[in-house]
């Protein structure tokens, strides 16, 4: 079971979070024209990297904040966590 550092609450067990997928996906702006290809890429296309990956988790049984987690998908090592408004590099 992973041990995830919520930027608001501190280290908490994985049980308190729910997974939210790739955090690097950016939704096309509302009220702006978007090509079918860009839209399909946003809705359907996800990379599934082996290794470092920035993903979204929600602290659903805690502060209910969505957060960013940089995790190694093979070893589960967590390198960094951040608020969604912050950058992880």
């Amino acid at each position: 079971m992973l041990y995830i550092k919520c930027p608001y609450c501190g280290l908490r067990a994985q049980k308190e979070f729910s997974y939210g997928g790739d955090a690097t996906v950016k939704r096309p702006n509302i009220n702006e024209e978007v090509s079918s290809e860009d839209w399909d890429n946003f809705v359907y296309m996800r990379k599934s990297p082996r290794g470092k990956h920035i993903e979204l988790w929600q602290h659903i049984a805690g502060c209910r904040q969505w957060i960013k987690v940089q995790r190694d998908t093979a070893t589960h090592e967590i390198f960094q966590t951040a608020k969604v408004t912050e950058e992880i590099r």
Binding site: S18, I30, Q58, W66, V84
Partner: peptide, 11 residues
């Protein structure tokens, strides 16, 4: 959760 996602992340 859906509403929170859009308010916190998208808009």
């Amino acid at each position: 959760s859906h509403l929170e996602y859009y308010l916190q992340i998208v808009w």
